[in-house]
């Protein structure tokens, strides 16, 4: 498909997503769209690591969850203004990405993934045990949304998602982005070209962490509460599914994956209480036949002349 046509299609889709739900006027649908946007941003941040830099982190939800808790704690318990809370989130996310960067230095591949999972679970356990600060299992409620209503919120969420997407696209197509893709393919070789791979990986870990933190801020605005469940490794796995289902290494794939998972769970749970089982089977089937994810399906149709040398 020509680039110009692609752009027109994208703009039309964007306009539809912005306008149609407002016309329908259902807050429920608005909240679903907001949720999709939140998980899309989260999934894009994960794809930057997984699909472009080749970093398989099982602790990524730490940023998401901690951001939610920081906002909840600072605004509800300390009565800080919202912008101050956001500032704190940035500080904390940078600190956490520093920790993860150090891990990349010391460990490789499987060991890296295991360590990141351990870090993730550490934060989860802290959230359940430090109940003086975190409210324990029940979580920290009482967060007031900065958006006056769901309509304004969803429009803002869509626009934020578009910005995140464009920013990420810019990043991966930049010279620095190419280096990252080189890191994914062969870390040592990129070093042999004169690139300080640690520096590059640190930067992408930081950016990805901040984006996940942004998703966490939006999450706690929507739900009004931060609970340990968002720090659990099952959350990271959910995001992993979204990215792979939608198409890893594409940036639009994660958005598709997030949308599919949200909508499928809602539609399916309306039919049966066994929807999770069906979803799991469906997921396996899709992966068997479309290993590049849903985005891969469309790619096949748009590039028939691609040279293949398998």
């Amino acid at each position: 498909m020509k680039t110009k046509n692609k752009l027109v299609l994208a703009l039309a889709l964007l306009a539809a997503v912005l306008v149609v739900p407002a016309l329908i006027g259902s807050s429920y649908i608005h909240s679903i769209i907001i949720t999709i946007c939140i998980y899309s941003i989260f999934a894009i941040s994960y794809d930057l690591l997984l699909g472009y830099t080749g970093i398989v982190s099982f602790g990524h939800t730490v940023y998401f969850g901690v951001a939610a808790y920081v906002v909840a704690f600072t605004t509800v318990k300390l009565h800080w203004p919202f912008l101050a809370a956001v500032g704190m989130v940035i500080v904390v996310c940078v600190a956490i990405s520093f920790i993860f960067s150090l891990v990349t230095l010391r460990t490789k591949n499987v060991y890296f993934s295991m360590v990141t999972m351990a870090i993730g679970q550490l934060f989860y356990v802290m959230s359940t045990k430090l109940y003086a600060i975190t409210g324990g299992d029940d979580g920290l409620p009482g967060v007031k949304s900065i958006f006056p209503n769901k309509t304004v919120f969803y429009i803002a969420a869509v626009l934020i998602l578009v910005c995140v997407y464009l920013f990420s696209k810019r990043l991966v197509n930049s010279p620095a982005g190419r280096v990252l893709q080189g890191v994914k393919e062969n870390d040592a070789r990129i070093g042999m070209l004169g690139y300080n791979t640690f520096k590059f990986k640190s930067i992408v870990i930081q950016i990805s962490g901040l984006l996940a933190g942004l998703a966490g801020i939006l999450y706690v605005n929507l739900n009004g509460i931060a609970t340990p469940s968002i720090l659990n490794s099952s959350m990271t796995l959910q995001i992993l599914f979204m990215v792979i289902l939608g198409g890893v290494g594409t940036l639009h794939g994660p958005v598709i994956g997030a949308a599919i998972m949200q909508i499928a769970s809602i539609v399916l749970s309306g039919f049966t209480t066994r929807w999770m089982l069906i979803f799991g089977i469906g997921f396996v089937v899709v992966m068997l036949f479309f290993p590049k994810g849903v985005a891969g399906v469309f790619d096949r149709f748009s590039q028939p002349n691609q040279l293949r040398k398998e």
Binding site: S26, S27, Y28, H30, S31, I32, T35, G139, K150, Y219, L222, N223, G224, I225, T227, S229, S265, S269, T273
Partner: peptide, 19 residues
Amino acid sequence: DTTCDVGVGVQKATKLLED
């Protein structure tokens, strides 16, 4: 159905309260 998830519970509550 909240599906035992906070996010879903909030969505459904939104539906009940606002829609």
